[in-house]
Amino acid sequence: MIAVWSCGPCSLLLLERHDRCPSCGGDLLEGSREGAATVLAATELLVAPEGWSAPHRLVLFELDGGGRSLAVAEDPLPAPGGRGRVELGQEGRFLWKRVPSAPSL
């Protein structure tokens, strides 16, 4: 399960805990999602940032039921529209798990 925080007044959805809504200051309600998600955009960075190895693959995903964030993906890089599953890994990082039949780039 993936934790999701939603803002009552402005409907902003966050996958990162905040004390208050960063957009309107409203109270946040905690919920959860199953982890099924769709790729909105993906990139393969060929010069890895410090502490990572190249190529470094990132996915911008949207959970079924709402809520978007980033996940680290393994080879191959999934294509926009591709389906997969998000899991919470170490140090609060989301990991993208590809559905075997999903398209890749």
Binding site: E16, A41, A42, P49, R93
Partner: peptide, 25 residues
């Protein structure tokens, strides 16, 4: 960038690539 983005290894080029990808799609 945001702490969440940095935690996932996000950089200016990679985050710009995602924003660009959203626009192009």
């Amino acid at each position: 960038l945001s702490p969440l983005e940095v935690r996932h290894g996000g950089t200016m080029p990679s985050m710009a690539a995602l924003v660009s990808g959203l626009y192009l799609s």
